[in-house]
């Protein structure tokens, strides 16, 4: 199975989309080699804007460009760019600016740099904003498809990409749909809802559990907002063991919270286990950190077994 970092997919895809749509512009805050916006920069130097280490200003500049008809994609590490919450809140969300925030280096999956560079609260804060669309693709196919969607979408959006390679979990014909999750593996003993870097581990856990006669449904949630509440309600009703959420993000405010909200609002009460961080991140290799925080296949399998008492 092929594997690719979604930041790399972003760089390659936006460069392709730039050919089709001359209004697409890309801005970066001195991290273009890391966010991979440098691929676009090399191809379209006149439509790439180096904004320096000024994330707040970059947000506003993008809003102004959008006002004048451009389609800006603004790039930085997710923790840095979503840290400019006040600017995003007013200049993008409230102004309904047609700007896509590309937050790379999602989660502990970035590894050695440690917590200060790990986007771990980004989904929570972006999800709280009216008008804001929040997307986290799980692999190359989904990331490219989501970016194609975003290039045509009008309004503020946030897409979260990874530094580490992500195993393909979708076939080549898969199309991203806003507000829809997709079931990667069927099962009705328990449901695992996963997003982004955690999805491959959820699939691995499914295989390991299956060998032991436990059938775990695996649902990939790329569209975190709008959110596919129906898939949660269905899982809550049909998966007798309950729901496990897995995310390389804080368990507060992200996918786990979205699932809990959906269940509570629908009045369907299934047991819920939220796997993710409830602490700061730290340094280590990406593999070590995924193991440490229980986000790899073995960790998710273990959590599900414990959750089911099996």
């Amino acid at each position: 199975m092929s594997a690719k970092a979604t930041r790399q997919v972003f760089g390659e895809t936006i460069a392709k989309l730039g050919e089709k749509n001359p209004n697409i512009v890309v801005l970066d805050a001195d991290l273009s080699k890391s966010t991979k916006s440098d691929i676009f920069a090399k191809k379209f130097p006149e439509r790439f804007f180096e904004m320096g280490i000024q994330e707040a200003n970059m947000v506003g500049v993008a809003a102004g460009m959008a006002n004048a008809g451009k389609i800006p994609f603004i790039c930085s590490f997710s923790c840095f760019i979503t840290g400019r919450f006040d600017q995003i809140r007013l200049s993008l969300a409230y102004s309904n600016a047609n700007v896509c925030i590309v937050g790379s280096h999602a989660g502990v999956g970035i590894g050695e740099d440690g917590y200060s560079q790990q986007g771990l609260e980004d989904i929570a804060v972006m999800r709280s904003l009216p008008n804001m669309v929040v997307i986290q693709p799980a692999d190359e196919i989904e990331c490219a498809s989501a970016l194609e969607f975003l290039a045509d979408y009008e309004g503020p959006s946030f897409i979260r990409t990874t530094r580490q390679n992500l195993m393909a979990v979708h076939g080549p014909d898969f199309k991203f749909q806003l507000g829809k999750s997709d079931t990667l593996r069927e099962g009705d003993d328990v449901a695992i809802f996963a997003t982004g870097g955690a999805v491959q581990g959820a699939v691995q856990a499914h295989e390991a559990l299956k060998a032991d006669g436990i059938h775990a449904r695996v649902v990939n949630v790329a569209s975190l907002k709008p959110f596919d509440a129906e898939a949660v309600v269905d899982a809550a009703k049909s998966c007798k063991g309950g729901i496990v959420t897995v995310e390389d993000h804080q368990i507060i405010g992200g996918l786990g919270s979205a699932v809990a909200e959906a269940m509570a609002e629908a009045g369907v009460g299934a047991r819920l286990l939220r796997v993710g961080l409830d602490s700061f991140g730290e340094s280590g290799t990406p593999e070590e950190l995924y193991r440490h925080f229980g986000l790899d296949g073995a960790g998710i399998e273990k959590s599900v077994r414990k959750f089911l008492g099996k």
């Binding site: 707040a56 506003g60 500049v61 460009m65 451009k70 600017q87 007013l90 102004s95 600016a97």
Partner: peptide, 30 residues
């Protein structure tokens, strides 16, 4: 801007408007 036609952007959290104006000016130049 979404409430009053002719207003170009939301402002009121101080410090943000000049960046927005910069983006407009950059788009014009581009």
């Amino acid at each position: 801007n979404t409430a009053t036609a002719g207003i170009e952007a939301c402002t009121g959290s101080l410090g943000q408007g000049l960046s927005i104006a910069q983006g407009m000016a950059m788009a014009a130049k581009a």
